[in-house]
Amino acid sequence: MPLDHPLNSLGFAKPPSQTRVVVAMSGGVDSSVVAAQLAEEGYDVVGVTLQLYDHGAALAKKGACCAGRDIHDARRVAEDMGFPHYVLDYENTFREAVIDEFADSYLAGATPVPCIRCNERVKFKDLLETAKDLDADCMATGHYIQRKMGPRGAQLHCAEDANRDQSYFLFSTKPEQLEYLRFPLGHLPSKDATRELARKYGLALADKPDSQDICFVPNGNYAAVIEKLRPGAAEPGNIVDIDGTVLAQHRGVIHYTIGQRRGLGIGGLADPLYVVKLDVDKKHVIVGPKDLLTTRTVPVREINWLGDDAFDSKTERHISVKIRSTKPPMEAIVRPLSATTAEIELLTPEEGVAPGQACVFYDSDSSRIFGGGWIWRGY
Rank of each mutant, 00 (worst) to 15 (best):
L88C: 12
I303G: 03
L337H: 13
A234Y: 05
G378R: 00
V240N: 01
A198W: 02
L185Y: 04
P209Q: 15
M1C: 15
H157I: 04
S338M: 02
G82E: 09
G186E: 01
E91V: 07
R20N: 12
N119P: 10
D89G: 12
K62G: 14
E227P: 00
A339L: 04
I145R: 01
G202F: 06
Y86L: 13
I214T: 07
D135A: 11
N219F: 07
A223Q: 03
S17D: 11
G378A: 12
V246R: 13
Y379M: 09
V77T: 14
C65I: 15
N92C: 10
D165A: 12
G42A: 05
A193H: 08
P336E: 03
A35H: 14
R164Y: 06
K228P: 00
E91K: 14
L273G: 08
V298D: 06
R317H: 13
T173W: 00
V287T: 09
L59E: 13
H284K: 05
L3A: 15
S364C: 11
G27R: 01
L88I: 15
H157G: 04
H143Y: 03
G267V: 12
P184Q: 02
A198L: 01
G288I: 01
Y222M: 07
P112I: 03
A159W: 01
E350K: 10
L247T: 13
G202Y: 10
T340Y: 03
I303Y: 01
A193N: 08
V285H: 04
V353I: 15
G202A: 06
E91W: 04
E196W: 06
V360L: 01
F12N: 09
D241L: 00
S167A: 15
R75G: 12
A39I: 00
D104V: 05
V77K: 02
C138F: 05
E227G: 02
K327L: 04
S313V: 13
A36P: 07
K228H: 10
L264A: 12
K277N: 14
P299Q: 09
G237Y: 02
A270G: 07
V280G: 05
Y53N: 13
P184I: 03
F361Q: 02
L170E: 02
E227M: 03
N304D: 07
D137S: 09
C158P: 04
S338N: 10
K61S: 15
Y43W: 05
M139I: 05
Y168Q: 13
A39N: 02
A204R: 14
H143R: 06
V280W: 01
A270K: 13
P218A: 06
Y144H: 15
D210W: 05
V98Q: 01
